[in-house]
Design a protein around this nucleic acid. Structure first.
Lengths: 234, 234
DNA sequence: CGAAGTCTTGACTAGACTCAAGTTGGGTGG
DNA sequence: CCACCCAACTTGAGTCTAGTCAAGACTTCG
């Protein structure tokens, strides 16, 4: 799982070894645990479970601004020593790996491709954020929910976490999905019912099965090209 | 204007000189001109005017995903040689400055602070994107419009483009504001009327005057801390 | 088995969209 | 210099998507 960085840029095996040696696996965090560690300037990657970035609004509401799946880097602040973009919370039992920031940075020197890989990961995160803007700005409820499912499926698939029959764990409550998509819990519920009624998905206790991916993709208007760190032809 | 990068990180005067020498000013672009130059791997900065990034949806709608003000870097793709995140269009007469990508990158070697400044600029853009998600996800129309006005005022202020009495040029049609905020043109119009009726703003042909910034800030729930590239205490 | 959190359902409300028809204002050409 | 034109802005009416409130059913877990 840790090797996902190499999806962005071919990495030499020495670097991979160095990374493996440097990573410290964290203990298992419980659901709703806070992953924010403002003091530490570590490079942190989610290894298992799921997490989300959010912001508490004045009126007590919460807006989820990003969802992390295994293989995602929790915070790119180490690149600029800027503060993290908001609190980070697990949504289920999760584990992270950490490498001390300075150790990671020093590997940049020895192999510039690690830098490129890191920047590509950051660029992909930016693309995710942009797609979220598009969802919230110009898609209706069914499209938003469908799009989220397609996106998460794609991202989990990239790290081998999609089982047979397009099924995967989705440890998010409907309330959390609503907070991520700018919809009320009730409306998320009704939207999911439509998708189930139309035999497009099945959901049961945190496990989603996509019965008809083409139709879901079509309802979502989903195009996964933004997830792939496509290289310009050199 | 070009020196805005130094807001992110103190830059040596040699670097500033080198930047100044390397920049080629573009001719004046007309409104609605396309700034996307996929072939060229230049570092491009908007110098005057305004521009926005957008995406065309299947149904003919358009979602504006980002607004650029003078001093903003148009495309961070040169960092990762990844494709630009969508088309970029001027909304008024505009001018950009370009530095060939390789030339810019080679300056990284001589002074690492330029790299930090560039990354900080990218981080700020990410923060903008996140705040947009928050707006679209959990703010109602008046809050969105107010927030946009506060944000643009702040960003223009940072480059000295806010005149006396908190007035500035806003070369966006109401339709474009709607596309950026996920609102219909009609609703944007009505929302602006409310703000004018309450003597909070004045608008006339592309020029906005904020009569009562505290009240606008309050309606928007605006907090400019995300715009400032705050450094962690070292 | 009980309790808390999650999911579901119904009824009502409201914020925002669409459609449609003006009105204004800046720019162009006769 | 005026008439015209087009784009942007306004206004009104009706509709609908999604939100709110409230109550009940189902899970999961201690």
């Amino acid at each position: 799982v840790i090797l996902r960085l190499s999806r962005f840029e071919p990495l030499s095996s020495e670097i991979k070894d160095a990374l493996r040696r440097g990573v410290k696996r964290s203990p298992l965090y419980s659901p709703y645990a806070n992953l924010l560690r403002d003091g530490a300037r570590d490079v942190t990657m989610l290894l298992t479970g799921m997490a989300c970035r959010f912001k508490l609004m004045g009126n007590g509401k919460r807006q989820i601004t990003g969802i992390l799946v295994p293989g995602d880097i929790c915070d790119f602040g180490f690149l600029t020593s800027s503060p993290p973009p908001g609190p980070l919370m697990t949504t289920t039992y999760s584990q992270v790996g950490r490498i001390p920031g300075p150790a990671f940075m020093s590997l940049f020197e020895s192999d510039p491709s690690l830098m490129l890989a890191t920047l590509s990961a950051a660029a992909t995160e930016a693309a995710l954020s942009q797609e979220r803007v598009i969802s919230l700005g110009s898609r209706i409820a069914v499209e938003r929910v469908s799009h989220l499912l397609c996106e998460i499926r794609s991202r989990l698939d990239a790290v081998g976490l999609v089982g047979p029959g397009n099924s995967f764990e989705l440890p998010l409550t409907q309330a959390e999905i609503g907070e991520a998509l700018g919809l009320s819990t009730v409306h998320v519920n009704r939207t999911l019912q439509v998708l189930r009624r139309d035999k497009i998905i099945t959901m049961r206790s945190g496990k989603v099965t996509i019965e008809d991916l083409p139709r879901l993709t079509e309802r979502a208007g989903f195009d996964d090209s933004y997830l792939r760190p496509a290289r310009l032809s050199p």
